[in-house]
Computed example of a mutant assay.
Amino acid sequence: MRAAVLALLSSLVLTCLPAAAEERVTLGVGRLFTNDQIGDGQDRWRTGSYSMSWMRGAEGTMARPGGLGEVIEYRFGHRILAPADLTSPTPGDRRYAGIMALGAYSHFTRGGIEFALGGELVAVGPMTRTDVLHDATHEAVGMPRPSAAVRAAQFGNAVYPTIGLEAARPVALGGAVLRPFVQVRAGDETYARAGVDLMFGENFTRGITARDETTGFLYQTLEDAPGRGLSFLVGYDAAKVFSSAWLPEPAHSLTPLRHRLRAGAHWQGEHVGLFYGAAWLGPEFIAQPSGQVVGAVQLQVRF
């Protein structure tokens, strides 16, 4: 484990080294919040997450450059996985997991193909203090709190070095863009995924977008990229998951494929942008009785 962590850290340092002497500046910060309370109104499985992407590159950058390492996304993620019942889980349901991730990805384009390549350190367990935050939040709003038994059974402290690659080929269709993509990830979850997004409007068809790990939604990361008005996105993907630290065998049997279907709209004004979308997430393990609908929100404020 120690060797893997050092190898990942070394690769991230090399990825983040400047490809040119030009000084990097902050190009924008993209954020996306997801929760099933603003989706199907439940509190279960992939119940909540927060993603933040801090983009750094040469001043004036408005699209993916041609060189590896010229634009770097420093990514922070926080996710909560939970059983369907936070107080008395059904035997065979998934265990509670409080997950935090920190990493870096290079965004670039080659031959008309858009790439995102990088890695993360994914931490889980009581050391993330996620269960404490979850408990306090639910107490404050009068929702069921994770029981002592659920918190005691959560995944223990661990760190997973994780690497990921996404490649997409945008195709212009009149006023829309069709963006088929493939994605591979190895680490906390190891999978191969293929899918497509259909995008209308400048919030998604310009700039540099990042992909949310929970829902698959693309969200804008460059502050000055989107023009005013409405933008829309629909998407679908399927993943073959080879292993999951969050659904370990033999306690759980993974579904043959993991499906996601999503749709959302973004409104951009002069200073404020607002996105809302809903994503259907199919069952991830055989004992999961149904899929779930997770809502996603992004608020952008420009001064």
Rank of each mutant, 00 (worst) to 15 (best):
Glu189Gly: 01
Arg169Gly: 07
Val171Arg: 10
Trp45Asp: 12
Leu6Gln: 15
Asp224His: 12
Ser51Met: 12
Ala278Cys: 06
Ala194Pro: 13
Ala140Lys: 00
Ile80Leu: 15
Leu117Thr: 03
Thr221Ala: 14
Phe275Tyr: 15
Val122Ser: 10
Ala167Leu: 04
Ala239His: 02
Ser243Pro: 00
Pro283Arg: 14
Asp197Arg: 07
Pro226Asp: 09
Gly67Met: 09
Pro126Gly: 15
Gly67His: 11
Pro91Thr: 00
Gly156Trp: 03
Val171Trp: 10
Pro65Asn: 11
Pro144Gln: 10
Gly92Ile: 04
Phe33Thr: 06
Gly48Met: 11
Ala140Glu: 00
Leu121Arg: 02
Ala3Ser: 15
Gly229Ile: 10
Leu81Gln: 12
Asp43Asn: 06
Gln268Asn: 13
Arg302Trp: 08
Glu270Cys: 11
Gly41Asp: 04
Ala7His: 05
Leu222Phe: 05
Ala84Ile: 04
Val159Met: 04
Val234Gly: 13
Ile38Tyr: 11
Thr215Trp: 05
Gly119His: 06
Ala123Leu: 00
Arg179Val: 09
Glu73Trp: 00
Tyr105Ala: 13
Val234Leu: 08
Gly30Phe: 00
Val293Gly: 10
Val124Cys: 14
Glu22Tyr: 05
Gly67Asp: 11
Ser106Pro: 05
Val272His: 08
Gly175Thr: 10
Phe242Asn: 01
Val124Arg: 07
His252Ser: 06
Thr214Gln: 11
Tyr276Lys: 08
Thr205Phe: 12
Pro89Leu: 00
Arg56Phe: 01
Leu17Asn: 07
Thr109Ile: 03
Leu173Gly: 13
Gln268Leu: 07
Val182Phe: 05
